[in-house]
Design a protein around this nucleic acid. Structure first.
Length: 362
DNA sequence: ACCGGAAGTC
DNA sequence: GACTTCCGGT
């Protein structure tokens, strides 16, 4: 029998938006690997809590580090997780074990030295969420370096909900920023990923899961179901979001760190943990923008990678400097942060972005 | 607190 | 596959 454990505070399951209208759409609860499953994944759950204010005292984004969060009340988080999963015996020890399994998948990594502090690897998350995104990541890093308003159209599956796009786009910003920090000329192969060789990790480029080419993998069964109404999502855009983004309400975004690297300034090595993923999983060079498109023909979203002005001006002095990340982890915790004090909380980059929706999605 | 192997569950 | 449970080790 089913366990109807949707209790106070605990995020409800699919179909029942729980917080100010911001909940993951059904597809979000489906695992690519297990199409039928609507079991929420832990990282999803964490993200949910993270973006909900009422859980601030339990878990919250860590100031300063993009993607880093602190579990302030381990027991409570475990309890909530246990509720959600109908595992009353859940505790932090078990939950943390699950969290640890994310290390190899590169979805998460531990911030050493800080208790209960972990950090999301958003670039990885994106890939995990929709491997397809790798497809339109142009192999040429120069793109990031301010290639002229190049446009890289790409197709995204119909169902990719705007909330995800929003989140992913922001994640990309993070990725981009990270790239700005320690980008490598070319996605260096990183052989050591799954110690066990078993493909327990996320999909890697070069061996993209076939199903995702514009299809199944990313559609997540949303072909039939039209994306959730945008109107149903309360759009409390993060302070860093430009007005346009109100269209794309987005749930889980860590607050934009105050630090704002400027041209010439030492790049913060803060963002996404991994300077590079496994072969080809380099994050998305060009900041893609939602440009909208005809749903008629292919019912697909076309992503245009507009010139990220904020990024283009970034110098990339590290072309020569090679920092060697831990080959095993893929990312190091040795994060050196610039001490750029002031800076507006606004992301200069995003400010230049424009999201265009020719036709409001249903 | 944190790590990761091993086995079990769904 | 994604945990959950248990556990020895640091």
């Amino acid at each position: 029998m089913q366990c109807s454990c949707t209790v106070e505070g605990a995020p409800a399951g699919p179909g029942s938006p729980w917080i100010s209208g911001v909940a993951f759409p059904d597809w979000a609860y489906k695992t690519e690997s297990s199409p039928g499953s609507r079991q929420i994944q832990l990282w999803h759950f964490i993200l949910e809590l993270l973006q909900k204010e009422e859980f601030r005292h339990v878990i919250a984004w860590q100031q300063g580090e993009y993607g880093e969060f602190v579990i302030k009340d381990p027991d409570e988080v475990a309890r909530l997780w246990g509720r959600r999963k109908c595992k009353p015996q859940m505790n932090y020890d078990k939950l943390s074990r699950a969290l640890r399994y994310y290390y190899n998948k590169r979805i998460l990594h531990k911030t050493k030295g800080k208790r209960f502090t972990y950090k999301f690897n958003f670039s990885r998350l994106i890939v995990v969420s929709c491997p397809l995104w790798e497809l339109w990541a142009p192999p040429a890093p120069q793109v990031l370096l301010g290639a002229p308003a190049l446009i890289r159209p790409a197709l995204l599956p119909t169902g990719l909900p705007s909330e995800l796009l929003h989140s992913l786009l922001l994640a990309q910003r993070a990725t981009a920023e990270q790239l700005a920090g320690h980008q490598t000329p070319h996605g260096l192969p990183e052989a050591t990923e799954d110690k066990k060789g078993s493909s327990s990790g996320a999909p890697r480029l070069g061996s993209l899961p076939g199903p995702c080419q514009l299809g199944p993998g990313c559609l997540l069964g949303s072909l039939q179901d039209p994306p959730p109404s945008l109107a149903s999502f309360a759009p409390p855009p993060p302070p860093s979001l430009p007005a346009d983004w109100t269209h794309l309400s987005g749930p889980f975004l860590p607050p934009v760190p105050p630090e704002q690297p400027f041209p010439g300034a030492p790049k913060p090595d803060t963002l996404l943990p991994g300077p590079r993923g496994p072969i080809g999983t380099r994050p998305f060079p060009g900041l893609p923008l939602l440009a909208g498109l005809g749903q008629g023909g292919g019912e697909r979203l076309r992503l245009l990678s507009l010139r990220p002005q904020g990024l283009e001006v970034k110098p990339y002095p590290m072309m020569g400097a090679k920092r060697r990340p831990d080959p095993r982890e893929g990312f190091s915790s040795d994060i050196l942060r610039p001490q750029t004090g002031d800076k507006s909380l606004v992301s200069p980059r995003l400010e230049n972005f424009k999201a265009v929706w020719p036709l409001d999605p249903p």
